[in-house]
Design a protein around this nucleic acid. Structure first.
Lengths: 189, 189
DNA sequence: ATTACGACATACGCGCCGTATGTCAACTCA
DNA sequence: TGAGTTGACATACGGCGCGTATGTCGTAAT
């Protein structure tokens, strides 16, 4: 069964990414997984449940990747910026775009309330928390700062991908994001 | 006919805000306006067209309001921050939330490509442009900066509204937004 | 006066979701 | 070991909502 669940999830993920939530049809990815809708409703409850599962999966992957990038960049402010840049680049993936950035909020509501608890958001929250405790960042509200940072990064990604030449916009977006992040830095030292 | 168009728009706006794009039914707001779906399809083409019109209307109102707030706050950096704060407050309106922030991107794609040309985005773009020309802001990419600022503000609003007590989150969000904005300030003077 | 046209209303089909019901294996337990 | 139970699906059905094709009626044009 775990096998089937995974195949359904995979098929659904592709369909949601390709057609968007509204136009993706249950029968299609059930068939693609070699099953029927019965299996879907049994495993995921309804269409939203299935979608939430897909979102959770992608979110987890993004958080893991961001964490890895952050770790590689040390543990200071640079790591935070690196994580943000990583989010921007990851969100260039059409799958992430369509599912997490566009349909996700519309179907599941604000990301901070997602069932997957938004691992992605949690990750930068921890990073901000550390930096704030170390006095590197201004003591603004923790959650607000984390939410705005990820929001800005993902917004940036959307902008990058919406352009005709993502390659040229990407560095501009990363640079702008870095500047904004620096606004959180505590004055001098 | 202009009269009818306006009534349909009004009814649709209420329905979209209350139920979301997916659950809002054409017949309902046609009936609410005292007409049938025929009138809708005649005036707006299809459901997306109608939705786009609603989004354009709200977007215009928001931009106008932001402009007014900005003007009242002078023409310096403070005005930019004030505009951002204004966006955050405006986005506390459930109508704006549901229509512009949640369903908008899902149905119409990235805001920077909206048919309404996103007056709201244009407005801050101009503000940033002035400040950058005056050397108040760092010379980062204009569009990127504007997009990230509005994105951050609207993201912040979503976060504020998602909480149990919006009143307590609002000042935190505005404060965090102000900090981020300051990251764009050119070093000293 | 006939024609053309625009603003709607009406009618219809089609797709898709959810749910109710059926099937069949594996497993339990006396 | 065989009757009962449960869980993982498949199948069947109803209903709703969108889009479109078609009809109607008033008004302007010539």
């Amino acid at each position: 069964m775990e096998e089937n669940r995974a195949r359904l999830l995979h098929a659904a993920r592709r369909a949601f990414a390709a057609k968007g939530y509204g136009d993706a049809v249950m029968d299609d990815f059930a068939a693609e997984a070699g099953l029927t809708r019965g299996a879907l409703y049994h495993s995921f409850g309804d269409k939203r449940g299935l979608f939430a599962a897909v979102v959770g999966q992608i979110d987890g992957e993004m958080a893991a990747r961001a964490k890895a990038v952050g770790a590689r960049a040390g543990d200071g402010f640079a790591a935070l910026v690196a994580e943000g840049a990583a989010y921007i680049e990851m969100a260039l993936d059409p799958e992430v775009q369509r599912i997490v950035l566009l349909d996700g909020p519309a179907v599941l509501g604000d990301p901070s309330k997602w069932p997957s608890q938004n691992a992605c958001l949690e990750e930068t929250r921890r990073a901000v928390e550390r930096l704030m405790a170390d006095g590197v960042l201004k003591p603004v509200d923790l959650d607000a700062a984390a939410r705005l940072l990820t929001g800005a990064a993902l917004t940036a990604a959307l902008w990058v991908a919406a352009g005709d030449d993502p390659g040229s916009r990407l560095p501009k977006a990363v640079e702008a994001f870095r500047c904004l992040s620096e606004g959180l830095l505590a004055p001098s030292r």
